[in-house]
Design a protein around this nucleic acid. Structure first.
Lengths: 363, 363
DNA sequence: CTGAAAGCGCTTACAG
DNA sequence: CTGAAAGCGCTTACAG
């Protein structure tokens, strides 16, 4: 049991050296400056006294805290816990700790949390709250700590970032649905002021086009937030269109959850009446009925890479900015089935659907 | 834009006072000691210079960090994010910040995280990792920071704590099932070294007894962790008993998730073949098929109260320990239906089951 | 390779 | 009510 307060001076006295020497002996980076035998004596003294360096004194002196601010919209959104864990685990292994802040997507809260983190002298910040055009981020002071964006990014790349290739993810989705014979495909889009919502919508447009499918404006509805309620509202909109869509591409799993509810509400069934695809592969969406086909993103990896980037920037503040784009992966589950052209009146074998040969991705 | 570095000295010079006076003027608790006019001058000087007190210097001097360590098993367990948010929100409003640590239920990690938090001089700790007999907790040094336990508690109450009345929760469950006519009720119990697993098991015993129902040992299976896999394993065990149970009480929702899978695996259906109840009301269990009947606990409130307790202990280290026991609430959803006695061969009206009159809770 | 000393920016008894 | 000063426990140029 260590005594209440053992300081570096105590160690130095016991080892018969000056406290400056003890400091150098105990510090990894300065150890090489001191005689090996002195190092041994100091180390022994430290051990025998149960010396624990005072973090606060060191931080005060060096103005480094070995802490990183992590700002997210809401920890209760299941997307974030695995990302946060990815960040924390990587940081912990480097002796850093994360300070977490939830903005609730509120600009005022965001500013307050940012200021609080600065006041606490975090060595860096990881932000999952960026908007495509983000007034706060554009206004950050020159002497603000290094910043890395995660998941969401800003329009002009003034920051390092780790995100997922949203367009590629949606392409996998559209091609999957196309291959199942779906032609009237709806999109419940995310908020367009976020890079994720915007990128997935653009990806939807692009991959529908290259799949040779038409985008009916009535089959696209824009949510104002990635929430279940908005998913239901937008699903109601696209399901009201005639002819009805045979599949819905939701911009994320929360929206997809709302779609499930609304599909049922309309007296339809998923997947028989409407196929449904989400994005993110949130925990437990594989336990829904039917299990959700979705786009898996490497949550923990995203977090770990973001932590890696911020640590790099701290060690080398002048290193060039990096934007990592991680590859998503389609996870096919029960919520997507053959479209109406293939299992409808025309049997797939008796008559080749003309659309098949028109499909440029197959020619 | 504040200059790179404005210190208290700069403010004092501009206001024409000594830095000690400036400190007193700016500090809430000492402000009353200084002349109102001086306060005004100092405040103005501080504002005009954009002075931001250096947190690090203050912490170093006062040995207080306004930070609290929060140690949980795993942020990816959906039980914890809402609790953590409850803690953080309450802490933030008091100017505190939370440092999060995930133990993965590993004793070594737990020790390491605990030591790290101590080294960072957290002002207090909130632990959600307690075991009923917890060697680490019993061994904490006399000069360790104040500790509050959350959700799980230790056997002898040497700590303040906030938890849920597990026995009362299970009683609600058993009475609900009893009222539906279930008599062969199984229990997929949690780990018995945790107060939650143990308390719910004891609650199961007690409320079965007072409901006049027999506990068949073959209908109780003990899991080794609150996981889906363990839930499935234990469900398989109790479903193998003959006569089969008509209902399963799972010690928490993760175990219930495993029960769902195993019920299906056995070719049974929930709720027609077997009713199922969980515990915790984790996010999204209302979206399962069928939606899970479960015991709701006030997650955010639990966190907020824990934060409250730790703040109290920091302000008044000698205040008496408190153990808050929050009331759970039954949420009835689709996973529980009438038991076999009432919708089986014997109609409820044609023949009164003898067990009804034997039921002491109804006499 | 080591010692002596300054100093990081505050807070807080201690005088007056 | 305010000033002068000590000091929290380290790190790090600066000498030698």
């Amino acid at each position: 049991m260590p005594a209440a307060k053992v300081t570096l001076r105590d160690v130095a006295v016991l080892a018969g050296v000056h406290s400056g020497t003890a400091s150098r002996a105990l510090n990894e980076s300065t150890r090489s400056l001191v005689n090996a035998d002195t190092v041994r004596r100091v180390t022994e003294a430290a051990n025998s006294l149960g010396y624990r360096p005072n973090h606060l004194a060191r931080s005060f002196k060096t103005q480094r805290t070995f802490s990183i601010g992590v700002i997210i919209p809401d920890l209760n959104n299941p997307l974030f816990p695995p990302i946060v864990r990815g960040i924390e685990d990587r940081l912990a292994s480097a002796g850093y700790v994360a300070l977490l802040g939830n903005t609730e997507n509120d600009a005022g809260r965001e500013r307050r949390i940012f200021a609080e983190m600065e006041a606490r002298h975090v060595d860096g910040l990881v932000l999952a709250t960026a908007r495509r055009e983000d007034p706060m981020l554009l206004g950050v002071a020159r002497n603000a700590p290094p910043i890395v964006l995660v998941n969401r990014i800003v329009e002009d790349h003034a920051f390092s970032s780790v995100s997922v290739d949203d367009g590629a993810g949606i392409r996998l989705v559209v091609e999957h649905l196309r291959a199942l014979g779906h032609r009237r495909i709806a999109h419940v889009a995310g908020p367009q002021e976020l890079s994720t919502g915007f990128g997935r919508y653009r990806g939807f447009q692009a991959s529908m086009r290259s799949a040779g499918l038409e985008i009916d404006p009535k089959l696209v509805s824009f949510s104002s937030s990635f929430s279940i309620a908005e998913g239901a509202r937008c699903a109601a909109e696209v399901l009201a269109a005639r002819p009805r869509p045979s599949a819905i591409v939701a911009a994320n799993d929360m929206l997809a959850l709302g779609c499930y509810a609304e599909i049922e509400e309309c007296g339809l069934r998923c997947p028989d009446g409407v196929s449904l695809v989400g994005f993110n592969d949130m925990p437990f969406v594989d336990r829904l009925t039917p299990p959700l086909t979705t786009v898996r993103i490497p949550h923990a990896e995203i977090g770990a890479q973001a932590a890696e980037l911020i640590l790099e920037r701290i060690d080398q503040p002048d290193s060039p900015l990096k934007s990592l784009l991680l590859a998503p992966e389609l996870v096919v589950r029960g919520s997507t089935v053959q479209g109406p052209k293939l299992n409808g009146k025309m049997s797939a074998s008796s008559r080749r659907s003309p659309s098949r040969s028109e499909d440029p991705s197959r020619s």
